[in-house]
């Protein structure tokens, strides 16, 4: 068996998610190659070569792969996929954008958001907003799947794989990059943070989200939000935790002013410890919280910050 892992990039650098996908590939077993595709990605390729378990890094460095647009990435992966039994990517917006395209071009199904590997052809994945876990077996010759990174521990950077260039250059006249607006933040990335503090509709307005800053600073936490808080315009949508936002599984998740709708729980109920702060003691969030504190968040948050 041989496995190709599509590397995740963030602003041209190797993203942490890739080390988790390599871990999933190791669970399947076999030779693992990593594909780094983009423009000016040598540093990312060198970082990928250090990931434990990787035998070879293949680098497609060309302007056509800049921003990893789906059309050229799909065409590139189709060219390379013939050498592999499995193609994996993280269930990031890039993986979700590109991999189904590859699968359809190869006339195979795709498995989304894999959270467990039973064997080389049998996998676990959540359905219905994580309220059921399906075990699925794929008899396709090529298994194409995205991996939920929080379900696999990252591999160490102790390896030394070889790096070689991929000469395949595809044409793309269908799509072009116009612009990108990335949120600037000094905090840890939401998906990989050990502690996450999230605010919901109960925060009242965007200004009040500053109440979470001090606590996040003291805990080295990322700040998340419920859909209600995003829809109300309190915070940008890339902070949304839930079925349709980010899936997180930190050591500690603190939900503040979040009622705990099914769709929000889908994004955080695998956290190790959940704390809920809410004034409504009937809020569904208390059913999954390890520690619940009923009260006014505007009194509790400043007190919590001062006592941490």
């Amino acid at each position: 068996m041989s496995i190709l892992v599509l590397a995740d990039l963030h602003e041209g650098q190797l993203a942490g998610a890739t080390a988790h996908v390599v871990a999933a590939a190791k669970a399947i077993g076999g030779d693992i190659d990593v594909l780094v595709a983009g423009e000016g990605v040598q540093a990312a390729a060198d970082a990928a070569a250090k990931l434990d378990g990787v035998s070879k890094v293949r680098v497609a460095d060309n302007a056509v792969y800049a921003h990893q647009l789906a059309e050229p990435m799909g065409a590139l992966l189709v060219e390379l996929a013939g050498d592999y039994s499995h193609v994996l990517a993280s269930a990031s917006t890039t993986g979700k954008n590109v991999l189904p395209r590859l699968a359809a071009l190869k006339d195979v199904s795709q498995l989304s958001d894999v959270i467990g590997v039973e064997s080389a052809d049998t996998f676990l994945r959540p359905i219905y907003a994580g309220n059921a876990i399906a075990t699925v077996k794929s008899d396709d010759a090529l298994k194409v799947m995205t991996v939920r990174t929080t379900a696999f521990d990252a591999v160490e950077s102790t390896g030394s794989a070889s790096v070689e260039a991929v000469e395949v250059v595809v044409e793309n006249g269908q799509s072009s990059f116009v612009k990108q607006e990335l949120a600037q933040s000094d905090r840890p990335e939401l998906g990989g943070a050990k502690v996450v503090v999230s605010g919901g509709r109960g925060m009242g307005n965007g200004e009040n989200f500053k109440l979470l800053d001090g606590i996040a600073d003291k805990l080295g936490a990322a700040i998340g939000a419920s859909r209600a808080a995003v829809d109300a315009g309190f915070v940008p949508n890339d902070m949304q935790v839930g079925q349709t936002g980010k899936i997180v599984a930190p050591e500690l998740y603190i939900a503040v002013g979040i009622s705990g709708a099914i769709q929000h729980l889908a994004g955080m109920k695998d956290s190790k410890v959940i704390v809920a702060i809410n004034k409504d003691e009937e809020a569904p969030i208390f059913q999954v919280a390890d520690y619940g504190l009923v009260g006014d968040l505007f009194e509790i948050l400043p007190e919590l910050e001062s006592k941490l």
Binding site: A132, I133, D139, I274, Q287, D290, L293
Partner: peptide, 23 residues
């Protein structure tokens, strides 16, 4: 499809937590 559904299970239940009285 060449993908077959072998089994569907409920996810592991979280243990009931406790309410605390103060920060």
């Amino acid at each position: 499809s060449k993908v077959s559904l072998l089994k569907v299970e409920s996810p592991a239940e979280r243990k009931g937590g406790v309410k605390v009285a103060s920060v």
